[in-house]
């Protein structure tokens, strides 16, 4: 069994806003093995992005990591100084965002930005860095890299910008990459290109990937293990095949049944209600107001994540009493 690269335990990241404390991440625990592709699935407000930002320790104000442990290569990142973190960011852990323009500076050429990243983390000369820049741009499939590196971000299309953002994230060959909805703003055909690219690069560089998305299709294609988040907490962790075949948490099951599929038309099952407000989240299990199986205990007690089979964790009071249908048996 592969070693653990990242281990998150009881992470809490809260945002102290005018309206109240937004408990965006409220006690999340999971781990990631070396070379693994892990999916973080959830809807808006599930805490998936904040989890990634917390690992990199770049939670925007007024957010704060209030509790928990983030172990990366057996070192607690929450104990690191800001300076140590700067070294880790980019060189060991990198992130790409949904909107690639937000991570590229519009006043510098693409080449300059990449070169700066390389030079910040590696002791190389300017010419070497330049050579590396061209190399990495070619790796991410930017045609005509030598000329295009002299262009500014606004001269690139969305898909090309995302390639550049990936190049920048991978410039120093990190061991862990967070991809936060990297294709949500892209067209389907471009999305397929970028997903393919990520898969290839992952194999080539042997890094671990955390794929953050709400798209069950992308998750099914890209990952080997999945963490399902809802309202700042973990609902279920399982191998991808297992999760799609036999979801054990009512939310996971409902989510799978609510997504239309290209290869079959089915009656879409509706998850009633709306995404909860994280300032006053529902008591007990946060999914209980929308859950078909909710009992009194679900309103009162917070369910703990328990391992029901090897490698399959569920946080649900009722998992033993309910039988859920998998996606296939419709």
């Amino acid at each position: 069994m592969a070693e653990t690269l990242l281990n998150i335990e009881g992470l809490k990241t809260h945002f102290f806003t005018e309206a109240g404390i937004v408990k965006a991440v409220d006690g999340i625990s999971f781990n990631l093995k070396k070379g693994e592709s892990l999916g973080l699935v959830g809807e808006s407000g599930s805490g998936k992005t904040v989890t990634a930002l917390s690992v990199l320790r770049i939670v925007p104000k007024p957010g704060k990591i209030t509790d928990g442990k983030i172990e990366f290569n057996d070192e607690n990142l929450l104990k690191k100084t800001e300076k140590e973190m700067q070294k880790i960011r980019g060189s060991k852990i990198a992130i790409i965002f949904q909107d690639p323009s937000s991570s590229l500076n519009p006043v510098y050429t693409v080449g300059t930005q990449l070169r700066d990243v390389i030079m910040a983390h590696q002791t190389v000369s300017k010419t070497e860095a330049r050579k590396k820049t061209i190399e990495i741009l070619e790796v991410v499939g930017l045609p005509d890299a030598e000329t295009r590196m002299r262009e500014y971000p606004h001269q690139f299309s969305g898909g090309m910008k995302q390639r550049v953002a990936i190049a920048r994230a991978l410039a120093c060959e990190p061991t862990l990459l967070f991809a936060d909805e990297p294709t949500t703003n892209l067209d389907v055909t471009i999305q397929a290109q970028v997903l393919n690219l990520l898969n290839d690069l992952k194999k080539k560089l042997g890094m671990s990937l955390v794929m953050i998305t709400h798209d069950m299709g992308i998750i099914a294609e890209m990952t080997t293990r999945i963490v399902v988040l809802y309202a700042g907490r973990v609902c279920e962790i399982a191998e991808t095949h297992d999760l799609f075949e036999r979801p054990r948490h009512p939310y996971t099951e409902a989510l799978l049944a609510a997504v239309p599929r290209l290869d079959m038309r089915k009656t879409l099952r509706v998850i009633p209600g709306n995404i909860p407000n994280l300032i006053e989240p529902p008591s007990g299990c946060r999914f209980h107001p929308r859950c078909n199986y909710a009992k009194q205990t679900c309103k009162e007690d917070i369910p703990v994540l328990e391992e029901i089979e090897s490698g399959h964790f569920v946080a649900c009071h009722e998992w033993q009493n309910i039988t859920l249908k998998g996606e296939r048996s419709h």
Binding site: L195, G217, A220, H241, F244, R261
Partner: peptide, 8 residues
């Protein structure tokens, strides 16, 4: 190009 929500 559309990812199918089914690992199989």
């Amino acid at each position: 190009a559309v990812p199918i929500p089914d690992p199989k």
